[in-house]
């Protein structure tokens, strides 16, 4: 057991190091485009880290995390929009371009939204839970489309990236490092949550709710808390994603996005700390490199994904790092 434990730790450290090294190498080779590719990997991994908390550890298969991803993005986009126009939000709040204010706003808003969605959705289980989370996400998607002030179907451009104190968020490498630090922070937070008494309860809720109830812990509040924490992390990732692209639109809220984040988690290995990073990195790299060779990249990407599911149980992490410690 200690052997596989070590193997997973080695794989984790390598993954973290490789992602950090990639943009440095890109800078040395004078290929700045790869910095933004690495930033994309870091941000989408963070979104996956959020989902993994609900899906992997809590057993709540949410098909609606795009709602949180998108709402996080819209917080960044709407702030930038008002800042650019010099107007107030609903005529009440002064606009800000300070990321250190925008991020907590995105996180709190997504947390509140997740409480609302979770309260209703967690009454159901299994496929019904998958579909009811999708339903709520679709409602938010159409809400995003129907507000013309914030771009409606066309979305909202972020002309001037929001700012950080001291460092410049406009510099690609700095922005990558910020995203990377937040990703590592998200993974660290996840590991602390999983290792805590709450984490033990959350995982027990996945495996056997009756058993959890028998020891005197009500499953519902545990699952709801897990769901809300998960949404908050994914919401932060959404805010970063909007800044990276300089754009936020309904596509960030669409069910394709929910599916994509879910694919990262499953591909990397459900319930593995670094699984989302492994999954997002492989997916985005394959998409990019096969796309460079042929227009038919989706076909080959599909074949590779199919191969991973059929022949690597437990996703990529299961393949390289062996089975999860205990399940």
């Amino acid at each position: 057991m200690t052997d596989t434990l070590n193997r997973e730790t080695i794989v984790n450290i390598s993954l973290a190091f490789l992602l950090l090294a990639a943009p440095m190498l890109a800078l040395a080779l004078d290929e700045p485009f790869y910095i933004s590719l690495a930033t994309k990997v870091a941000i989408l991994s963070l979104a996956g880290v959020g989902l993994n908390l609900a899906l992997g550890y809590g057993g709540m298969i949410s098909f609606g995390h795009a709602a949180f991803f998108g709402v996080g993005g819209y917080v960044a986009g709407i702030s930038a929009h008002h800042m650019f126009e010099g107007s107030d939000f609903l005529g009440l709040f002064a606009a800000t371009d300070q990321l250190l204010l925008i991020w907590p706003m995105a996180i709190i808003l997504c947390g509140g939204l997740a409480i609302l969605i979770g309260l209703f959705s967690l009454r159901t289980t299994g496929v019904y839970f998958i579909m009811i989370t999708l339903a709520f996400a679709q409602m938010i998607y159409y809400l995003g489309i129907s507000i013309p002030t914030y771009g409606g179907e066309d979305g909202l451009p972020i002309y001037v990236r929001n700012q950080l104190p001291v460092v410049s968020s406009d510099d690609p490498l700095t922005f990558f490092l910020v995203c990377y630090a937040l990703l590592m922070g998200g993974i660290f937070l996840s590991s602390r949550i999983i290792g805590s008494r709450f984490g033990a309860a959350l995982q027990t809720a996945r495996m056997n709710e009756v058993r959890l109830a028998t020891v005197g812990i009500a499953p519902f509040p545990v699952k709801l808390t897990g769901f809300v924490l998960s949404a908050m992390i994914t919401g932060l990732a959404g805010a970063l994603f909007a800044e990276l692209n300089g754009f936020v639109g309904p596509s960030m809220l669409s069910w394709h996005r929910s599916g994509e984040i879910m694919i990262f988690v499953i591909l990397g290995g459900v319930g593995r700390l670094y699984g989302p990073l492994a999954g997002a990195a492989l997916f985005i790299l394959l998409e990019f490199f096969i796309g460079g060779f042929t227009d038919r990249w989706q076909f080959f990407l599909g074949l590779i994904l199919l191969g991973v599911v059929l022949f690597a149980k437990g996703g990529l992490m299961g393949l390289i790092a062996g089975r999860a410690r205990h399940d």
């Binding site: 694919i263 499953i266 459900v270 989706q298 076909f299 990407l301 994904l305 199919l306 991973v308 059929l310």
Partner: peptide, 17 residues
């Protein structure tokens, strides 16, 4: 179910392309 989701998603990509 999650493996089924990933595998059939992969098949969507294959069939569409």
């Amino acid at each position: 179910h999650l493996d089924q989701v990933l595998a059939t998603f992969a098949m969507i990509l294959i069939f569409s392309e």
